[in-house]
Amino acid sequence: MILNQPYQVYQNMAVQTATPERLLLMLFEGAIRFCKEAIHALQTQNYETGNAKIIRVQNIINELIVTLDRDVGGELAQNLLSIYQYLQRRLIEANLKKDQSIIEEVSQHLKELYEGFAEAAKLVKGQETKHEHM
């Protein structure tokens, strides 16, 4: 695939060079953005675009589910799996009912998860920096 547009090249490089923590945050950022776009599409009764954006959010959540390390993550991973499965069910319902309030709920949950993971990533980075200086 040939990329002509500088933004696409930049975006590909950003993904290829990102830390696992940054990749996780990028997934959440994408899901939140697609929720916003789905809400806008439903508000303007562009149901085809709304459907496509909801599916994009579902695909990201599927990726989050697949990348969960349940062996290492234990109870936390199991709790995250339950949350992700709940979000998937809500997105299916939102798509069937064309209900933007459900997408707003999903988006809020995603924002809360994003903030939690962003804070954890800062702590991890802080610990790594601390060990490098020792």
Rank of each mutant, 00 (worst) to 15 (best):
V9P: 01
E132F: 00
S101N: 14
M1K: 02
L42V: 06
R33G: 06
Y10W: 10
I102T: 07
L68G: 01
V15D: 07
N59G: 14
A52H: 08
E21C: 03
L123Y: 07
E112Q: 13
H131G: 02
E75T: 13
H133Q: 15
Q78T: 10
K111F: 03
E128P: 04
L3R: 11
Q16H: 11
G74S: 08
E75M: 08
H133D: 10
S101M: 10
I92M: 11
A41W: 03
G126P: 00
A31M: 05
R33A: 14
E29V: 08
T17F: 09
R70I: 14
T44N: 14
V72F: 07
E132D: 13
N51K: 12
P6G: 02
E93K: 15
I83F: 09
V9G: 02
M26A: 10
L25P: 02
K111A: 05
R33N: 12
G126V: 05
I103R: 02
L68I: 06
Q43C: 10
D71G: 05
A52Y: 06
G50A: 14
Q100D: 15
L3G: 01
A38P: 04
Q78R: 14
L27W: 04
E119Y: 04
M134N: 10
R22C: 07
Q16D: 12
L81I: 01
G116R: 09
A77H: 04
P6K: 07
Q5Y: 07
I61N: 01
K125Y: 05
G73H: 06
I2A: 09
I92K: 02
G50R: 05
F28E: 00
Q11I: 01
Q85E: 15
N12I: 07
N95Y: 00
S101Y: 13
E119P: 04
D71N: 14
I60L: 12
L3E: 11
Q108W: 04
A121F: 05
Q88P: 01
I65Y: 00
K111S: 09
R90E: 15
E75L: 06
I60E: 04
V15R: 11
K122I: 07
E63Y: 11
Q108T: 11
L27N: 10
Y84D: 03
G126I: 04
H131L: 15
A120D: 07
E128N: 12
V57H: 03
Q88N: 13
A118E: 11
T49R: 10
L42T: 00
H133R: 14
T49E: 15
L113F: 08
L123D: 11
V66G: 04
E37M: 12
L96T: 15
L123G: 03
I32C: 10
G74L: 09
A31C: 09
A94N: 02
K125L: 08
R33E: 14
G50S: 08
E48D: 15
G73S: 07
